[in-house]
Simulated assay, not measured.
Amino acid sequence: MNHALTLMQWLSPAFPVGAFAYSHGLEQVIADGTVSEARSLQDWLSALLAHGSGRADAVLLAAAYQADDTAQVDATARAFAAGAERLQETDLQGAAFCDTARAVWGLDLTGLTYPVAVGAAARAMDIPLTDTLPLYLHAFVSNLVSVAQRAMPLGQTDGQRVLSALAPVIDATAHAASTATLDDLASSCFAADIAAMRHETLQPRIFRT
């Protein structure tokens, strides 16, 4: 089996986890004017990858990959969610991922949070963690660039420039997470966490988180 193709399928926009419906709090900071063009978007996403929820997801994915029983990792992922919408996002996307992975590949996965589900699936399919982590993080920021293109003036070329510029941060975060444990789980992106909480009452809005 071609592991690269399996990962690309799992993490593509066509895989039915509904990622397009979630902004991860980005819609709120766009509404606030904090993120308003390519440079501020790149800075925001870079911080998430290096110090915030992107890094945390990578650590949780790695911990799930290395665990014989994902229950503790999943419980930690739920406890670490900074607010109701962050929990909803990881819970619903993870459940959808499990449902499809079970139906298509016969994997015994049910009701896991999203990074934990991907980590457990990669282990079950013998897909290297070092391949899984950077592709997961790339999918994470690709979705948020797509959010920005729908919620603010950001052209396709500028969106691709942002993604290209984030490649070193993705690589560094993935490399660090590949040897991480739950003891390394941390986040210092408090503004992003607060934005996700404030988004719960944003009106009007087009994204679920």
Rank of each mutant, 00 (worst) to 15 (best):
D69K: 06
V73H: 09
D74C: 11
T76E: 09
A77L: 02
R78T: 06
A79V: 02
A79W: 04
A79D: 10
F80N: 07
A81G: 11
A81Y: 04
A82W: 06
G83I: 08
G83F: 09
L87V: 04
E89Y: 07
T90R: 12
D91P: 05
G94V: 00
A95F: 08
A95L: 09
A96V: 02
A96D: 03
F97Q: 06
D99E: 12
D99C: 05
D99Q: 07
A101C: 06
A101R: 00
A101S: 04
R102V: 03
R102G: 05
W105G: 00
W105R: 03
D108C: 05
D108K: 06
D108H: 09
L109Y: 00
T110D: 14
T110Q: 15
L112Q: 02
T113E: 13
Y114F: 13
P115D: 06
V116C: 05
A117N: 00
V118R: 01
V118D: 01
V118Q: 01
G119C: 03
A121H: 01
A121V: 01
A121N: 02
A122H: 00
R123Q: 03
A124W: 02
A124K: 06
D126Y: 15
D126Q: 15
I127H: 06
L129R: 11
T130M: 12
L135N: 09
Y136Q: 12
Y136M: 15
S142F: 04
S142C: 02
N143V: 06
N143W: 03
S146F: 09
S146C: 13
A148N: 08
A148E: 10
Q149H: 09
R150D: 14
Q156N: 12
T157S: 15
G159D: 10
G159M: 09
Q160F: 10
R161E: 15
V162T: 08
L163W: 11
L163E: 11
S164V: 14
A167C: 13
P168Q: 07
P168H: 07
D171F: 11
A172S: 14
A172Y: 05
T173R: 00
A176S: 05
A177V: 03
S178G: 03
T179W: 14
T181R: 04
D183N: 08
D183Q: 11
D183I: 04
